[in-house]
C-alpha cells in the first residue's frame, strides 16, 4: 500500500539540506508538492538559486530517504515557477538557522542581530558568502563574522 501524503511530508521533514544540515528541505521551502502518480511518487522541487550546486544532491537525498522508507519508485520533478523565495522558509527553519549561527533573512535587507551576541551593531563584508544564498556580515561588538541568509 502507498504511504499517505501526510506521512511522506513527515519523512521529508527529516531530509537535511546538504549545505545547511541543521534545516530540512521542507523547512527551506523547496519541496513544492508530493503526489502519487499511480505507482510512482512525484516530488516537485524548486531550486533556491538557478546555479545552486546542491540541487542534484538534494534530489538524490530525497530519493534515498524515501526509498529507505519503502517507497520504491520516486521521481523528482524540477519546477522553476513561481521562483523560490526566502518567504517560504518556515518559522521553525528560521529559528534553527539562527541557533546554528546563520542570521535568517529579514525584510530590511540585512540581519536583525548578531546570531552570537545579539548585538545590532553590524557591518556587511560581502554580498556573497560560502553559498550563493548567503551574504557575509560581521558583528562590530563581538567581532565574529557570520553568514546572513539573503532575501530573494
Amino acid at each position: 500500500m502507498n504511504a499517505s501524503v501526510d506521512q511522506l511530508w513527515i519523512w521529508l521533514q527529516d531530509v537535511p539540506d546538504p549545505e545547511i544540515p541543521v534545516i530540512s528541505v521542507v523547512d527551506l521551502g523547496i519541496v513544492r508538492d508530493v503526489a502519487w502518480d499511480t505507482s510512482a511518487l512525484v516530488v516537485t522541487v524548486t531550486p533556491t538559486y538557478s546555479g545552486c550546486p546542491a540541487t542534484a544532491v538534494i534530489a538524490l537525498d530525497i530519493t534515498t530517504a524515501l526509498q529507505g522508507h519503502g517507497v520504491k519508485d520516486v521521481r523528482i520533478e524540477t519546477q522553476i515557477s513561481p521562483p523560490w523565495t526566502t518567504d517560504w522558509l518556515s518559522d521553525a527553519g528560521r529559528k534553527k538557522l539562527n541557533a546554528y549561527g546563520i542570521a535568517p533573512p529579514s525584510p530590511s535587507g540585512g540581519p536583525e542581530a548578531c546570531p552570537q551576541c545579539k548585538s545590532t551593531a553590524l557591518s556587511k563584508i560581502s554580498q556573497f558568502a560560502s553559498t550563493p544564498c548567503k551574504a557575509m556580515w560581521r558583528c562590530d561588538d563581538c567581532l565574529e563574522p557570520f553568514d546572513y541568509f539573503k532575501c530573494i
Partner: peptide, 18 residues
C-alpha cells in the same frame, strides 16, 4: 571575499544558461 563573490556570480550565470 571577491573570489567567492566571483565564483557565486559565475554559478548563477551557468545555472541560468542551463
Amino acid at each position: 571575499e571577491e573570489d567567492i563573490a566571483l565564483a557565486n556570480t559565475a554559478l548563477d550565470l551557468i545555472g541560468q544558461t542551463q
